[in-house]
Amino acid sequence: MLTYLIRRLLEMIPVLLVVSLLVFGFIKLLPGDPARIYAGQDATIEAVESARQLLGLNDPLPAQYGHWLNGMVHGDLGTTYRTRQPVLSVIESGFMPTLLLALAGFAWSVVLGLVIGVVSALKRGKWQDWTLMSMAVGGISMPPFWLGLLLIQFVAMPFGIFAVSGFNQPTDIILPAITLGSSVAAVMARFTRSAFLDVAQEDYVRTANAKGLRARLVTWKHIMRNALIPIITMLGLQFGFLLGGSIIVESVFSWPGLGWLLIESIKTQDQPVIQALVMLFVFEFILINLLVDVLYAVVNPAIRLR
C-alpha cells in the first residue's frame, strides 16, 4: 500500500507540471494589461512601468513561468492585484466556507441518493421505481442556479427563515447545500440503482438466494457491498465536482468561498488568484482520485493496490 501511494504521488508531479504550463499560457492569453490592473486605471505611465518591473512582466515568458512555478512550490502564490494581499491568505479565507458547503451538500445528497437508488432497485418496475426515477431525472435536468433562485424566491423571502446571501450563522448553509447537492443526489440515485441491479444478476447472488438466505442478508452483504465499488468511484468524482463546481451556487447565494472568489477575480482580472485557484481545483481532483483508489481496497480486501 505504501509503495503504491508513493508511486501515485510521484505520478502527480508531471501531471501538475503540464497543467501549470497550460494555466500559465491561458492566463497570458487573457486581454488586459496586468501592470495597468495592478497599478490602477488612473495610474500614470510611470506607475504602470514601475508595476510592470515589480511584477517581472518585462522578463521573457520562460523566466516568468519559472519564477511563478518556483514560488508556488515554496508556498508563495504571489500578491492579489485588487487588495495587495498574499494570494495564499485570500485562498485560505475562502477554502473553509467552500469545504463546509461541499461537505453539507455531499452528506445529504449521498444519503438520499443511496436510499432512493436502493429502494428503486428493490421496487423495480413498480410505481415506486417510476416515481423515484422521475424525481431523479428532474433533479439532473434542473440547473443549480435555477433551483437556487427558486429557493430564494419561494422559501427564503416569503418565510424569512433562511438568509439569501452570505454566511453569518449555521442555518445560512441550508439553502446553498440543498442547491449544490440536488444534482448529485439525482446522479447517485440513478447510478446506485444501476449498480445494484447489475450486481443482483450475478451468479453468486442467485446462489445465495437459492440457499435460502434471508433477503436482507443477501441485499446488504452480497449485493450492496459489491455494488459499492463503482459507487465509490462516482462518490469521489461527485465530491470533486462539489469542491470545484460550486462556483455558480456560491455566486447565487454570495457565499464567501473559492467559487465566489474565482468569479470576482475573473471580473477584476486578478490573474495570480485565478492561476492559484485553477491549480488548486486540479490538485483536488487528482488527490480525490487517489483516495478513491485507496477506498477500493478498504471496501473489498480482495483488491490489491500495486
Rank of each mutant, 00 (worst) to 15 (best):
L2H: 05
I6D: 06
R8C: 10
L9D: 11
M12K: 00
I13M: 12
L21H: 04
L21M: 14
L21C: 13
F24C: 14
F26I: 14
I27Q: 04
R36C: 01
I37H: 03
I37S: 07
A51N: 06
L57V: 07
L57E: 09
N58P: 00
D59I: 04
A63D: 03
A63C: 07
Q64Y: 05
W68R: 15
L69D: 04
N70I: 05
M72Y: 14
H74I: 11
Y81F: 15
T83S: 14
R84V: 10
I91D: 00
S93V: 06
M96G: 03
M96D: 07
T98Q: 09
L99Y: 07
L100Q: 10
G105Q: 08
F106K: 10
S109F: 02
G113K: 06
I116T: 02
I116M: 12
G117W: 01
R124G: 13
G125Q: 07
T131R: 02
T131M: 15
M133H: 06
S134N: 05
A136Q: 09
I140F: 13
I140E: 08
M142Q: 11
F145I: 01
L149G: 02
L150C: 13
L150D: 07
A156I: 11
M157H: 12
I161A: 03
V164P: 03
N168P: 09
T171R: 03
T179N: 11
G181R: 06
G181N: 04
S182V: 09
A186S: 08
V199Q: 05
T207P: 10
A208L: 13
A210D: 07
K211M: 12
G212R: 04
R216V: 13
R216W: 03
R216A: 13
L217T: 12
K221L: 11
L228F: 15
G236H: 12
G236C: 09
G240D: 03
L242R: 05
L242W: 01
E250H: 10
S251C: 07
F253C: 01
W255C: 01
G259E: 00
L261R: 08
L262R: 05
L262T: 07
E264Q: 14
S265M: 05
D270C: 12
D270M: 05
Q271L: 10
P272S: 10
V273M: 10
I274T: 08
F283Q: 10
I303K: 09
I303V: 14
